[in-house]
Design a protein around this nucleic acid. Sequence first.
DNA 1: CGTCGAATTGATGTCATTCAACTACAGTGG
DNA 2: CCACTGTAGTTGAATGACATCAATTCGACG
Lengths: 193, 193
Amino acid sequence: MTYSFKQYLTQYAGVTASQFEQLEDKIEKRSLTEGKVLLSEGQVCHHFFYVEKGLLRFYSIDKRGREHILQFAPEKWLVVDRASFYSNEPSEFYIDTLEASRIAVLDEPFIDMASELSPQFRKYNERILQNHIRQLQKRIGRLIGTSAEERYLNFVEKYKDVVSRVPQWMIASYLGITPESLSRIRKTLANQA
Amino acid sequence: MTYSFKQYLTQYAGVTASQFEQLEDKIEKRSLTEGKVLLSEGQVCHHFFYVEKGLLRFYSIDKRGREHILQFAPEKWLVVDRASFYSNEPSEFYIDTLEASRIAVLDEPFIDMASELSPQFRKYNERILQNHIRQLQKRIGRLIGTSAEERYLNFVEKYKDVVSRVPQWMIASYLGITPESLSRIRKTLANQA
DNA sequence: CGTCGAATTGATGTCATTCAACTACAGTGG
DNA sequence: CCACTGTAGTTGAATGACATCAATTCGACG
């Protein structure tokens, strides 16, 4: 099942069909195999990535060489390091594909043009930005205030389709725990049930 | 020492003197004693708060009744729950004063008018928004990937003036640890030095 | 001086990490 | 078709980091 970017823009972002025509040729579409890196630490993030089909991941690697996944992006999601995109400063993050994926690649001229052309799009873009902040704040709250088990349950609830598509150690990475710990947590949960 | 909002707008946000005059009467200034609550959970956050003098704090309270401080805002800082402000949905956070403070209160009409009047202001507002996201992402990275001791050192480095102005247990709350743990961390650091 | 909240200290508990061993399974080359 | 290899996942034992609870101590302020 794929979710075309056109459909997304017109349904969710309030872009009209005629507006879309003007934007259409600025959209680069790419089909990628698993494991392709779209953004590396040190590069400026020049693109929004919209996922039509497949699964991306947004993560960092700390000094000790450990990956920390900040976000999974399945179908219909946008991924971008906004801090880098808007400031033109090098990113501290990586983006890559976890599955063979079909994506739409949007650059700054596209975003600017769409924002000018469609106030609705600008609003929508702002809204998902606010949403993003809200997610980040919630995540901080959970990291500070809840146990790994609670965070896992919350993750499963919110991303149940993702759970079955990624290896368990990546979920551990997202939760901020080791794969071993997650394995044990799952075991105790299974016994309770 | 106070840092007037006018100075801030003209120096940092690129608003001209004549533009400021048009905006001036939309700015509400308030002087508050310590402990005044500016935003409570459940309310929509209708204002940006700029701190001319004093110190604000942005925090949540979890189900167990524990406070988690997301942000301190000393002079020259802006505080707002953007997720609530832009979506008009109830906030999950509190904002209050930690010291007697003088603040500028900005409502949506002000932000809209300033954005229209001054593209520079719009840009600036966007930039601090990106910055905010960057901070949140960094904080998540630290919560996931570093020890409480490292987080404390990082906090002291970045907010050294704040450190001396707030009780230690609030710093612990910001770091996501107990006051006791912070006390011990400080002790071991003092012995090393 | 007495009081009250903040900070420290000690004893103990809990949760998650680390390191190591082992199982399960998929992919590769003989 | 089977051994070989590598990766994911599980399990155990030991360790470490931080929490909890309780008892003092410290310090500001009435």
